[in-house]
Design a protein around this nucleic acid. Structure first.
Lengths: 186, 186
DNA sequence: GCTTTAAAGCAAAGGATTTGCGTTAGCAAC
DNA sequence: GTTGCTAACGCAAATCCTTTGCTTTAAAGC
């Protein structure tokens, strides 16, 4: 028997995925989000609509996939020498990226196109990984660090809630204020 | 001149809205969410699909509307005599209602079918109103109460984040723990 | 009542989505 | 290499959803 259900990861499949993702990004940049359709994306990517439907299911899941790709961390978090500054820098950067209409739309796509918790779970995993990296690095310096859950509850969650539900009430410095409030309450 | 753009609020319009909402609720109870379509809902409600499209735009906005209806508070918050107990009771009740697959779907619908922040804003308004009622009542008793923002940041936001992004990591007692942590940190 | 007109019904046109089948091209074994 | 296997793509027909112009109904104000 040996190999069962060999999933194709490279070659044409990879090219198609890349072309479709890039088509979505390009169209999002130049058109209104409501105008996006699967046939439109497929045409731009040089692919048949049925290919998109078979691989992604529908437009929402495709958008969620693209949004996740955009959220994947690329480098190590910036190192400013202290836990407080590192967390604050990360929080402010996160807010900067997600409080714009475009960034907010990405989060909404992840939540909306959620096939049984896959995309939200992955989104959370990316973010948690990033935070944990900051915490671990600080612990290595000998600092006293809060738990990952504490950072999720007291920094990430409030920011996410406000981006999703109260996008108008986001003042600059909010991220740093949350970090300060967490670190000073011990 | 006088009346401009008289919006119809009663009679047939109200009956149609009610019939469509009820059709959605009935279909959600007996079918899989992915099988829902506008023509299906319209048929169940005894209405033409174009009526639904003209009033709600698309299925997502209709689902968001139904979800909001479901979230509208009906009575005053339960009064247990103390801020801590009232907040904890509210938090646990909120979690109970929204951590089920159905409840989670409602929140996702509100976020997904969001036409420029209307549905999320309304959702937030309902919840904030409820919390503010608890706070005001407690203040009337002479208790020292936190700000609404503090409750949003430290209780509602963490619960919402976990429901949306980490639905598996919800332990019973989480709501009360958040309330305790907020009230004891002062 | 009578008038006005917002909202619903109807039906045709225009797209999006699904699906069966033939074709292409990764991958593995030889 | 080259061959066999089959996942993934292309194509096209069928189906279904969505939009839209026009007509009809029935709220709301006089």
């Amino acid at each position: 028997m040996g190999t069962r259900q060999a999933v194709r990861t490279g070659g044409r499949s990879a090219r198609v995925q890349q072309a479709v993702h890039e088509a979505v990004r390009a169209l999002l940049a130049e058109r209104d989000r409501a105008d996006l359709t699967v046939p439109l994306v497929a045409a731009r990517a040089g692919v048949t609509p049925s290919t998109v439907y078979r691989r992604w299911g529908d437009l929402q899941e495709l958008l969620a996939d693209v949004a996740l790709e955009h959220m994947r961390p690329d480098g190590p978090p910036t190192d400013l020498g202290s836990l407080r500054d590192d967390l604050a820098a990360w929080a402010e950067e996160w807010l900067e990226e997600t409080s714009s209409p475009t960034g907010r739309a990405f989060i909404r796509d992840v939540v909306a196109g959620d096939d049984g918790g896959r995309s939200t779970g992955q989104c959370c995993a990316y973010t948690s990984g990033r935070i944990q990296a900051i915490l671990t690095r600080s612990a290595g310096r000998g600092e006293d660090v809060p738990t990952l859950d504490a950072v999720l509850d007291h920094v990430l969650a409030p920011m996410t809630y406000r981006v999703l539900f109260m996008s108008d009430s986001l003042a600059p410095g909010y991220g740093r204020a949350l970090v300060d409030s967490l670190l000073d309450a011990r």
